[in-house]
Amino acid sequence: MIDTKQPYLQVDSINKSFGRSRVLHDISFSVMQNQVAIVRGMNGSGKSTLLSILSTHMSADSGTIFYKGLNSKKNLQDFRKSLGVLDHLPMLYDRLTVEENLHFFAKVYSIPDFGNQIDYWVDKLELNKHLNHKIHHLSHGFQKRVGLARSLMHNPQILLLDEPETGLDQKSLEIFFSILGDFLNNGGCAIVATHNDFKMLEKFSLNFLIEKNRLIQQ
């Protein structure tokens, strides 16, 4: 049963500075199930930093992230299990094949019956022909597809996507939007840092802009 009243992800007063340079100032927002928060902003505005903090890779100077009402720091392992992250970099081992990479991450996330999960995502992302190819032999677009399979394989509830559309051709974009639409329809929520308008997901969207280190809802 989907509880639509409680925010799935709530960000409360996040601040982050690098030395004297303040990057994020008092960032607060919340995302419910079936919603995608689209964060726009100029280059260097702090979008990727915000996603890094949400992914737990970077820590905020102050502020709290709540996941289903629970403090994410106090439930770190559960929070990490609930995240799927697609970054600028594919986060895959260059010298391993697509299949070996997916097997590795399936084991890292302790996915039960991971063979079926891998088959499902390989079919869905049309990676069948490339299963035995090493990552460094794949084009950027296919690397991104494998990255998407990696980030969705463990059934995360929150997707963090940093400029996911970069380098994707029309066909890959269609697959990507269809998967993201299904993910949101099935109760997930996503935060996307992008320059794209994401019109295909308009009905799910909350639009934000980071300007002068602050987050503004549009």
């Binding site: 992914s55 737990t56 890779h57 970054d87 970099l89 081992y93 260059d94 996330y109 302790s110």
Partner: peptide, 17 residues
């Protein structure tokens, strides 16, 4: 160095491992 390629260290650090 192999862990630093393609953001792999980040992938490991944000995993439940």
């Amino acid at each position: 160095q192999l862990e630093m390629q393609n953001g792999m260290m980040k992938a490991l650090l944000i995993s439940p491992m």
